[in-house]
Write a protein that binds this DNA or RNA. Structure first.
Lengths: 257, 257
DNA sequence: CGCTGCGTTGAGACTACTCAATATCCGTGG
DNA sequence: CCACGGATATTGAGTAGTCTCAACGCAGCG
């Protein structure tokens, strides 16, 4: 990991903090200047991590939280025999392990999927925020709660949806989330996961993932070539997935034009 | 639902608030008198709900949160075609939908499994707490984070564990949680779910649930007759489940003697 | 040029599903 | 006290979804 000198971080960090804040803007009131400043101020330093690196490992005790400025990361739950479940995917603006602030011992691993820029926020500064800025505190809390809402949707998918439905659901979700922070290109977006990893997120084997993705392409709903994801027909994809974006609690919570 | 006059609630509510607080005692510092008092004070009223009632329905907007004083409840994610996934099971002392405080629109349903006594906590009183009692605020936040940790474990189960392993895991979890609030009877405990509901929690059919439970009994690990659950061999059950109670963040986080 | 990682395909096996029948338990009313 | 109904649990049989293993294809890269 390489360090970025603190005085170079503002533009980047601000961008990501903005993205983080923007996604929560749906709520009643926007964050005040002071609050945004306090958040930026809570950042101790920014680190750069290459792809495919464990940023935090299951079982470790954390003293700071990771705010993802740039890149993709995921959370992984490991079983002792090697099976693994991807528990969440994170993109620019996500406060990846904000929860470690309260629950120190990590019950899962955080791993980079692409090269990432990560802002480190020491827990004691978060504690300080809870003592002085109740509204920002609530906003931070909210962001962990939206995380949990997404977890619940994934649970429904793992438990009840077929692999095909669940794959469609995942792609819908990623599209909405990426669009919310402007990381889409029309109906196309970059998906830096291979089929093994997509399978680990969907709870199915890589082979089955491949077949299911082929079905979605045959349905003219969604296609993936390498990392190039494209939604061919959003309505159809949402219908397959039984998708309803409410749970993402996005600012302009509606669907695209 | 019937109401309990406010001046009759103290003993009951205190018990449950204590249970709620006790489960978080593992953390560095215990709650102060003031804080416990503030929590009790936040309770507007106590309602009694019969079994099998939707307490809060998916899509509704909440203005208060439910603290479960007594009984069992669950959270359910519904698909539009009727399939449903039980997302969480809640027992005495659980702050069932504390998250609705920040994420107003419910993305899932809360349902009673037995007759329940529920303390209603208006959101504005929670807001007040965040403005005056940072430590209690953190404790409340923590409790939603532990919820999320449990969700993640369930996700690992749904995605990676076989039905047999996952059933074993669920029973281990319930045993530890019930024991933490003194609702076990040695290795026995009451489990007020039928096999359909257990199946909805495990993401499998009722028929398969039945077969899997029979396997666990044949393994001399766990038995269920009606609502009478009994762990026949904790070590064996934990081995089947690959169970590690760390994620529950229980006070005396160790295993039983 | 030959790795190496990823994607694709086929075949056979296994897990879990559905449907349907039967069994058991328990509460209620006769 | 027994007969009945309803809910729940159990069993069997056939099927669908997903898995594993193994082979092959293809691209990028040293």
């Amino acid at each position: 990991m390489s360090l970025i000198p603190p005085h170079d971080l503002p533009p980047l960090a601000e961008l990501a903090a903005d993205r983080w804040a923007a996604r929560l803007a749906s709520q009643d009131d926007a964050l005040a200047e002071v609050e945004l400043a306090a958040l930026l101020d809570a950042i101790d330093r920014v680190v750069e991590v290459p792809a495919d690196v464990d940023v935090v490992r299951q079982g470790e005790i954390q003293t700071e939280s990771n705010l993802l400025l740039d890149g993709w990361a995921c959370r992984i739950g490991d079983l002792s025999d090697g099976r693994r479940q991807i528990l969440a995917l994170h993109i620019s603006g996500d406060f990846v392990d904000l929860h470690s602030f309260q629950v120190r011992r990590m019950d899962h691993t955080v791993r980079s999927l692409t090269p990432c820029r990560i802002a480190m926020v020491p827990h004691e500064r978060l504690t300080r925020i809870t003592e002085t800025l109740p509204r920002l505190t609530r906003r931070l809390w909210l962001s962990t709660l939206i995380d949990a809402a997404i977890l619940r949707q994934w649970m429904v998918g793992l438990g009840q949806r077929s692999a095909r439905e669940n794959a469609a659901h995942l792609m819908c979700e990623l599209f909405y989330r990426l669009r919310a922070v402007g990381l889409n290109d029309g109906l196309k977006f970059r998906l830096p996961l291979n089929q093994i990893e997509i399978g680990e997120a969907l709870g199915v084997s890589a082979v089955h993932t491949n077949r299911v993705l082929q079905e979605l392409k045959a349905d003219r709903a969604f296609s993936l070539r390498g990392q190039a994801a494209e939604i061919l027909d959003l309505k159809r994809l949402e219908a397959i997935a039984d998708f309803d974006p409410t749970y993402l609690h996005l600012p302009g919570w509606g669907k695209p034009e």
